[in-house]
């Protein structure tokens, strides 16, 4: 199923001079980044470097201090923009799944189509079941989130984000809370999404995944975008000393 392939010029997502601080803590400092249609851009960087905040800004879960974010040619940082409309076109998946524990798996996936997009329940359920099938969980539709393994919960969260046919998917360390043997099932799902043409912006520590799937890798350090490049170059031959340090630590931890 093709995602967001409407031919148009310019990058799908364009971030210019983005600034964000919490109190006196400057978390994003003049970040500029483009994501082209169908591209997979991976954000790497130490914990606290601002990856989550960047994703949350794109999804308008945070109000930016300065800078411009354009999605599909529309300035979404304009305060007059309908944030709910923007969010319903951008899917986000969190590290901690954040499924709704009081709803069944199916109800988790149909909530937004029914309540936000006004789909009739039958149609929403048909789509939701198709999407659950897509992530390999159609047999779990009636289950509660807490009856699923972590990997299954994360796949439900991805289905829940995909059911709205978003033009852009934001994935925030979606495998970090998973046991190692469950990481693979989620990463292979992301790989398939990429092959189907989904545009994705992914924060991750899975360097192997980044090397195989990413079109571009960005290294965030203390809120600044220190280095951007194709994975083969950035991961193998980083130009910045900070990037080299970070990658050396990751290699030590056995993740590359």
């Amino acid at each position: 199923m093709p995602f967001g392939q409407a031919p148009a010029d310019g990058p799908l997502l364009s971030i210019r001079n983005l600034r964000k601080s919490f109190g006196t803590n400057l978390v994003l400092d003049e970040v500029s980044l483009d994501v082209d249609r169908g591209d997979c851009v991976v954000l790497i960087g130490a914990s606290g470097s601002g990856k989550s905040t960047l994703l949350r800004c794109v999804n308008l879960l945070e109000v930016v201090d300065d800078g411009v974010i354009t999605l599909d040619g529309v300035d979404v940082t304009d305060p007059r923009v309908d944030a709910d409309r923007v969010r319903s076109r951008v899917g986000i998946v969190f590290q901690a799944f954040n499924l709704f524990p009081h709803l069944s798996v199916l109800a988790n996936v149909t909530l937004s189509p029914v309540k936000v997009h006004g789909l009739p329940r039958a149609e929403a359920e048909r789509r939701a079941l198709a999407m659950l099938d897509r992530v390999g969980l159609s047999d779990k539709a009636a289950a509660r989130p807490d009856e699923l393994s972590g990997g299954q919960q994360q796949r439900v969260a991805i289905a829940r984000a995909l059911v709205n046919s978003p033009v852009l998917m934001l994935l925030d360390e979606v495998t970090s809370a998973l046991d190692p043997e469950l990481v693979g099932e989620v990463l292979s799902l992301l790989r398939e999404l990429k092959d189907e043409g989904m545009t994705m912006l992914i924060a991750t520590h899975e360097m192997g995944f980044a090397r195989q799937v990413a079109d571009t890798v960005c290294f965030l350090d203390g809120g600044r975008l220190l280095e951007v490049g194709p994975p083969a170059q950035l991961l193998a031959d980083p130009q910045q000393p900070r990037t080299r340090q970070f990658l050396a630590r990751i290699i030590e931890a056995g993740r590359l």
Binding site: L61, R85, R87, N98, K115, V116, R160, A161
Partner: peptide, 21 residues
């Protein structure tokens, strides 16, 4: 708060997030 954030990220309004989540 992450429950509300998840609801908002799906496009639910503040009132809908309160009501359904």
């Amino acid at each position: 708060p992450s429950q509300r954030a998840a609801a908002r990220s799906l496009g639910l309004s503040n009132a809908q997030a309160l009501r359904y989540v």
